[in-house]
Each structure stands twice: as C-alpha cells, then as structure tokens.
Simulated assay, not measured.
Amino acid sequence: MNKILVTGAAGFIGSHLVKTLYESGYEIDIIDSFENVSPLFKEDYVNIISKDIKDIDKINTSCKYELIIHLAAKSTILWCEGNLENCIQDNIIGTYRVLKFALKKEIPIIFASSRDVYGEPLSLPVNERAPTNPINLYGMSKLYAEKILEYKSSVPTIVLRLSNVYGIGDRIDRAIPRFIIGAKKYNKIIVYGGEQVLDYVSVEDVVNAFIKSIKQISNIKYEVFNIGTGIGITIAKLAEMVTERLGGKIEFLPYRKVDAKKYIADIGKAKEILKWIPSRNISNDLDNLVDYYSNIG
C-alpha cells in the first residue's frame, strides 16, 4: 500500500482529500494542529503523527512516503493581518520545515497555494505567468512559501494556486456559508463591497486536481497551476442567489482593502498538463449548499 503524508488534513479541503485518498487505497499519515477541524474529518481514514508541523523532523526515519501534500496554513486573511508573526511561522517557516524533510527523504511535494499571490491582476483571466503582487499578508505568505519551494526544492514539486473553494464542511465565516446562515438565521446578508468578481471552484474539483497532480508529478520538476473554473461571479450576485432561495435582505458595507476586486483563473495549463477539467459550478451546487448550511451555525 502506498503511503502519503498530508499536513492540514483535518481542515475543509483536507477532510475531503483524505477521504478520497483512503478510498483509493492509500495509507495516510497526517500532521494537523486541529485548530480548525472540518465536521467531515474522520480519524478512521488516517494515522495522526503529530499536532505540530515542527515535529516533522521527528518522524521515524523508516517511514517511506510516496508523496507529501502540504495543506497546513493559516488561511484566514483577516487573521493573518492581525497576527503577522504567527502567519510567518505557520505559512512560511512551516513550508520550509516540510521542504527540509522532503529533501532529506527525497519525497515529491504538492503544495496548496492561493490565487491571493496575484493580488489585483492587470487583466482577466489570469494565467500562471501573470505578475504576483499580493495585497494582503496571507497572499504574501503563500508567495514566499512558493519562492522557497521554487529556489530550494530538488524534488518534484507541484504548486496549485487555488481559487475560492466552496463546498460542504467549510468554515462558517467564509462567504458562502456566512451568506446562507445570515439569510436563514438573521434574515440579512452582509456583503463587503459587492462588485468583486471572483472564481468559485468546488472542493470536489480541487480534490480531483490533487489526484491528477499525484499521477503527473513523476514527470514534473517544478510547476505552478491555477485551479479554478475560468468563470467569474460578483459577490453581489452570489448574495442575490442566496436570497432568492431563502429570502432576506442584503446590506452592503464598504469594500475591505485586503480583498481582491477581481480574479478569474486561466486554467489552460492545468487542462493541458494535469489533464484536469472542472466538472461543477456554483450555480448548480448552490441548492445543496443552502440545504447543508441552513441547518448549522
């Protein structure tokens, strides 16, 4: 049985990913702080090695991993703005620790990065050659982590720059769960700005991108791929779609400067090299999301 090490496995994306890996026959070791545990996470799928990424150096030297999937990060933009030192420790230094371990053991890496590395793009859609100019500390931390991997990694490395990921089991402070819970519980959705155009990709399609990356990584030295849909939707329209289903009013508040105003991914490279194509979209999935998040929070 092939063994994979996954950091951040108990989170939203990780919980979906380890389920798929487990069902595909992988043995999965994980490192996770368990600070933000998805309700979908099941310990039955995994072996918990540690709750601290600093312990990665203490992993038994006899462990032979086919791959490391590095998801662990502080991913809340506003939290990072107020906690710079912890953001650096978790997102940058944590990635460096993973890389050191991977180099010592000669293990390929798949790293979950973010569309936030681009900041405010000059044009749409955004391809992987576009300038990287983050406008928030989270995006900066992801970009520095990428640079460490790019310049220091001598093992096969894939970086997946994820668009806005949606799905069941997400944190309820993120936009779609927050909109649904707001409409259902308070009869009001609060929207910051509203004119922002963003690319929402399903967690199922993101998991499939990781699976496709596993299959292709032996052919790759270092590559970056955008993972999105190539389709944009305004935040205001997304809120309207929720109120069409649940009722309620929309309250628009001033735009937050740490939020990008536009992003649509050019996913041509992922289609060509990873043989990955998104199969879902937010319009078709919203009813299921409304059913799920209406009953929590």
Rank of each mutant, 00 (worst) to 15 (best):
G232W: 12
D266V: 12
E204R: 11
I296T: 09
K188G: 00
I13K: 12
Q216A: 15
S75G: 04
T7H: 09
S62R: 12
S15M: 09
I168V: 14
L71P: 03
D170Y: 07
K51I: 02
H70C: 08
Y263V: 11
A102E: 04
R129A: 10
C87F: 01
G230P: 13
N91W: 14
P108G: 02
G94I: 09
D291M: 06
W79M: 02
I68G: 04
N281W: 13
V197A: 03
V37T: 15
K74G: 00
S163T: 07
Y138L: 07
R129M: 14
R280D: 03
S50P: 02
L122E: 15
S33L: 10
F12Q: 06
I211K: 11
I31C: 03
D32P: 03
A130F: 15
A239P: 04
I233D: 00
G119V: 09
K237M: 06
P177V: 10
S141V: 09
T7N: 07
Y255P: 00
T95K: 09
N47D: 00
L198P: 02
D205E: 12
L84T: 09
L143W: 15
P125H: 11
E272I: 08
I31V: 05
E240W: 06
P177K: 08
I235D: 00
K54S: 08
I189Q: 04
D44P: 00
L238H: 01
P156T: 04
T95H: 06
